[in-house]
């Protein structure tokens, strides 16, 4: 496998997992971790790029905030 193959496939897998996490977070997580989001829907698509790019951070913070009971 070449360097280009490695970067390409890592990018695809990372992005694919990110899309899954983004969908799960927007459906199940957002309202529970941020009270200001309740009742606001138009802004949610704006979060998708960030959720895909930072999904490991999103999972860590989601878990931390749930454990804290926010």
């Amino acid at each position: 496998m070449t360097f280009a193959d490695l970067v390409y496939w890592c990018g695809l897998v990372y992005g694919g997992l990110g899309l899954g996490v983004a969908a799960a977070f927007l459906v199940f997580g957002l309202d529970r971790v941020d009270r200001s989001a309740r009742g606001s829907f138009a802004f949610r698509p704006l979060l998708v790029p960030g959720l895909v790019l930072l999904w490991p951070v999103v999972i860590a913070n989601w878990r931390r905030l749930l454990l804290r009971g926010t």
Partner: peptide, 16 residues
């Protein structure tokens, strides 16, 4: 730049 633009919404400030 992409990460910065993607996290420019106020939600990210609260969340992170």
């Amino acid at each position: 730049l992409l990460v910065m633009a993607a996290t420019s919404h106020d939600f990210w400030l609260t969340f992170l």
